[in-house]
Design a protein around this nucleic acid. Structure first.
Length: 451
RNA sequence: GUGGCUAUAGCUCAGUUGGCAGAGCGCCUGGUUGUGGUCCAGGAGGUCGCCGGUUCAAGCCCGGUUAGCCACCCCA
């Protein structure tokens, strides 16, 4: 029995899954850079009061403590450090700290581990990688960025389709629409209404209707109106008209609602052109609407909706503030670990091999090992990943060594040149290590669709 | 933090009423004496999560504990 057990919630991939993850990370980074986002990395820790101030949410934060610290640790939080649980709080701090040296609007991407002391489950981890893109303005931030950001993510995730990622659907809503509508109805506890609406998929409309009346003081008619709003969804501007009609029926039109509808309409319209079929308005999206102030986004993998959102975000009017200046921001974050764990476990994406090696150079006898080393060196000098067999075993064993790792070619050194065998086809040809090249597709391991 | 389920070979899992610890896959060796995969034969591999209790006897029953999975909470 293994004396060491894996720690649940702290995922570690085997080498082939790591190749898939690395491809995802490379693709995200490249796409973010194509869209003009600059990369940064922030420290892993923030002062505890910083981490807990944002929205005062009861985030499960891992606190950092020195082993040699005195046992009678101070009860107060001052001076304590915690591991960051997202990349937004660090960004806000980073922006304030470097405001004088940054150019606004500041577009940045950031791909790092984050930690949350939650109970792990399928697709939910205590340590995981997030890939964030945000735009931060100084003083103001034009609405068009709320259109641009989800389209950046649509581009990034769309580029992963070629390795087998299922299509994604980015669901959008707008805090102003929800709040404007509820207030127009006469419901003032907007956050409580949102909390109940968020349960729709889990407990159904009838149960949510009851909760709206019990928890939010809604009348039966108000509850019905909220449910009717939440039922609206669609990928074209028809949803805007549908909300307007519903508001007219209930006399719940407000200026705030109109502002929100104009924003949501602009987003839907632009998305229909730039990423057809990907962005869908869904008026029941409520998560995060309590702290976001404008657009809010959630992303599901088509066919894997049960996994939850793989990419979420929204707009904060006050992402950061130093008292004199406020910095609004809009951004989204991809749960890379959640995404990778699913596409690997579900067998959607695989690596072409588990090691970088393209060519295994066989060793005839230990006395001849230098000749094999020379072949490998010649290949590496020309950018071809090569390894030398660990033992001068029978050639069958050496071929098997390559086969188990997915190494496509085995090189047999000869007196003058040598020969190289494609162990998938069995084809073997004489070759010179100074000139031979593998097919481009075999040079490095790649992520490919598994089916 | 709350609740339910689970824990047996490297992996996936059987194990009857309490009575000698099992299968498939994987791994090693040989058949094939320096060109793999298929096939055949053989082999290695176990603190039955841990601690205690009941019993002539516990993988199995009881208590505790730890870990894992799932759900709630929350969220990528």
């Amino acid at each position: 029995m293994a004396r060491i057990a894996p720690l649940s919630g702290f995922p570690e991939w085997l080498p082939d899954a790591r190749i898939v993850e690395q491809h995802v990370l490379d693709t995200l980074r490249r796409t973010f850079e194509l869209h003009g986002f600059a990369g940064i990395e922030t420290r892993a820790v923030e002062p505890l009061e910083q981490l807990l101030s944002k929205g005062e949410t009861s985030k499960e934060v891992y606190v950092l403590r020195r082993l040699q610290a005195e046992d009678d640790a101070p009860a107060d939080r001052s001076g304590q450090l915690g591991l960051h649980f997202d990349l937004t709080v660090p960004l806000a701090r980073y922006v304030l700290e470097n405001a004088g040296r940054l150019a606004f609007p500041f577009k940045r991407y950031q791909i790092q581990k984050v930690w949350r002391g939650e109970r792990p489950q399928d697709g939910r981890f205590r340590e995981f990688t997030q890939a964030d893109v945000d735009v931060v303005g100084a003083g103001d931030l034009p609405y068009h960025f709320e259109v641009e950001l989800p389209l950046v993510m649509a581009d990034a995730l769309g580029r992963l389709a070629e390795v087998g990622l299922p299509p994604v659907r980015i669901l959008v809503n707008n805090r102003k629409v929800a709040e404007g509508f509820y207030r127009g109805l006469g419901l003032t506890d907007v956050e409580e209404v949102l909390r109940q609406i968020d349960k729709l998929d889990k407990i159904g409309a009838d149960a949510v209707g009851d909760l709206l009346q019990e928890q939010c003081g809604a009348t039966a008619d108000q509850a019905r109106a909220c449910l009717a709003l939440a039922a609206i969804s669609g990928a074209d501007v028809g949803v805007i008209d549908a909300v307007r009609e519903l508001a007219a029926v209930h006399g719940s039109g407000t200026d705030l609602l109109e502002t929100g509808l104009a924003e949501l309409g602009a987003l839907i319209e632009a998305a229909a052109v730039r990423a057809p079929g990907v962005v869908v308005a869904d008026l029941k999206i409520a998560r995060g609407l309590d702290y976001y102030t404008g657009s809010v986004y959630e992303t599901v993998l088509v066919g894997h909706e049960g996994l939850g959102s793989i990419c979420s975000g929204g707009r904060y009017d006050t992402l950061a503030s130093d008292g004199k200046n406020t910095y609004p921001g809009v951004g989204l974050s991809i749960g890379v670990s959640r995404l990778v764990s699913r596409i690997v476990a579900a067998g959607l994406v695989r690596a072409t091999r588990s090691v970088p090696t393209a060519v295994l150079v066989a060793v005839v006898t230990e006395e001849d090992r230098a000749a094999s080393d020379a072949v490998a060196a010649a290949l590496r000098a020309r950018g071809i990943p090569a390894d030398v067999a660990p033992k001068a075993a029978k050639f069958g064993k050496q071929i098997q060594f390559a086969d188990r790792r997915g190494i496509p070619f085995v090189w047999f050194p000869g007196d003058r040149a040598g020969s190289v065998k494609d162990i998938r086809s069995g084809d073997q040809v004489d070759a010179d290590a100074a000139t031979w090249e593998p097919p481009a597709a075999d040079l490095w391991p790649r992520a490919v669709p598994a089916v």
